[in-house]
Simulated assay, not measured.
Amino acid sequence: MPAATLHSAANRDDEPIGSLAQQQDECLLPTTSVREILKAFERSEADVLAVVDPGDSRTAIGTLSESHVLRTYGEELERRNQEMFSR
């Protein structure tokens, strides 16, 4: 969802947040692996996905951006490569 859409929705206090969700069937659990997270971003073509409570309520507990996942994954790969070659 474009940031402009979110900012314009901030002025509509009576609209439930669920009405703004575009990928309502694509969400992440706190236990989802990085591989599955990347697949979810590819399937949904979203930039940000909701992280939901693993219970039946599917309550949103946060969001995760694709750019954050890729940056963190890249940093971890770099760190592990440095450890491997510095031995």
Rank of each mutant, 00 (worst) to 15 (best):
G62Q: 03
P30Q: 02
M84Q: 14
Q23F: 04
V34D: 12
T72C: 11
S8K: 07
A60G: 03
G55S: 15
S33Y: 07
L64Y: 02
Q82S: 06
Q24M: 10
G74A: 09
A4H: 12
L38K: 08
L38T: 02
N81I: 11
R43F: 10
E78L: 08
E36G: 02
G55N: 13
D14V: 08
F85Y: 14
N11D: 11
H68I: 07
A40M: 14
D56N: 09
F41D: 00
L38R: 11
L77F: 05
A50C: 05
E83L: 13
D47F: 04
R80F: 06
A46W: 00
V69H: 01
D25S: 13
S8R: 07
L49I: 02
L70Y: 08
D47Q: 14
M84H: 09
G74Y: 09
S86L: 08
Q82F: 08
P2W: 13
P30H: 07
H68Y: 08
Q24A: 06
S67Q: 07
D25H: 08
P54M: 08
R58D: 07
D56H: 06
V69F: 01
A60F: 07
N11K: 15
A3L: 15
Q24G: 08
L49H: 01
H68A: 09
V51K: 01
A21C: 01
E78D: 10
A9T: 02
N11H: 10
E83W: 09
A60V: 15
T59P: 06
E78R: 13
Q82P: 00
V69S: 03
T72Y: 01
E83A: 12
D53R: 08
E42H: 14
E26I: 15
H7V: 04
A50L: 12
T31Q: 12
P16V: 05
A46Q: 06
L28S: 03
L20A: 06
C27L: 05
L49D: 00
M1F: 10
S19I: 00
D25A: 10
E76Q: 11
L49V: 01
S8D: 00
L28Q: 04
A40V: 06
F41L: 04
S33C: 08
L28R: 05
Q24R: 13
